[in-house]
Simulated assay, not measured.
Amino acid sequence: MKTHALICIFAVACIPLTGCSLFKKKQPPPVQTIAASPVSGTELDPANTEKLRHGETMRAYPVSRYVDPRDPNLMHEAHIVYRKENPAAWNLTPHAPTVVPLGPVLALADPAEKTQLLPAEVEQKMAAQNRLMAALIEQNETLTAELSRLKSEITKLRESQTTTTKPEKQ
């Protein structure tokens, strides 16, 4: 009996020391949930949804108080009754023109943004044209130099002619 009393006193004395941890349930660790990111191509925006499918048409009808026709002992309070007028259906006659991709794009949207390599034959012809243009520019420069030289000689000859033909005053 004394041992039984000692055990009870010991149990009562240990409860405050342990902080009632014997009676507390252990909390499971919090579960970390990772929000799923949307996958492209799995959901349509509302504008495109109407092009594919018509939503169902719902109507709301307000009803005031009335006595139940099946049981005259029941009265219904005023409420709203919702009725599905038209079910959802596929849009078989879209108003917007449908664009069907027919194959790869053959033209660039902006050719200035993307440079394409030229075929070898075109590159050779362009190089020949560049050489010809350089030769023409060089020829033009020599001809203008020759013309300026000839003009200066003509002016010298005219000056010499005028000096020899002038009669001297006596």
Score class of each variant (00 low, 15 high):
T3P: 00
T3I: 04
A5W: 04
A5Q: 10
L6A: 11
I7R: 01
I7V: 10
A13M: 07
C14V: 15
P16E: 03
L17C: 07
T18D: 12
Q27H: 01
Q27S: 04
P28V: 10
Q32G: 04
I34Q: 14
A35I: 13
A36I: 10
V39F: 04
S40W: 14
G41V: 08
G41L: 08
E43Q: 15
E43I: 15
E43K: 15
P46F: 01
P46N: 03
P46T: 03
A47W: 12
E50N: 04
K51I: 09
K51Q: 09
K51R: 12
R53N: 05
G55D: 14
G55N: 12
E56G: 06
M58L: 13
R59I: 11
A60C: 02
P62K: 03
V63K: 06
V63Q: 11
V63T: 08
Y66C: 12
Y66T: 12
D68M: 06
R70M: 12
N73A: 14
N73H: 08
N73Y: 05
N73W: 02
L74E: 05
M75W: 00
H79Y: 04
N91H: 00
T93N: 10
H95V: 08
P97W: 03
V105I: 14
L106A: 02
A107M: 03
A107H: 00
L108D: 09
L108K: 11
A109L: 11
D110N: 09
P111T: 14
E113W: 01
K114N: 02
T115I: 09
Q116Y: 03
L118Q: 09
P119A: 09
A120S: 11
E123K: 10
Q124K: 13
K125A: 01
Q129G: 04
L132Q: 09
A135Y: 05
A135G: 06
L136C: 07
E138K: 09
N140T: 15
T142H: 04
T142Q: 13
L143D: 05
T144W: 06
T144G: 01
A145M: 09
L150T: 06
S152Q: 14
E153M: 05
E153R: 07
R158S: 02
R158V: 08
E159Q: 06
T162Y: 05
T162L: 12
T164Y: 11
K166G: 01
K169I: 15
K169P: 02
K169T: 15
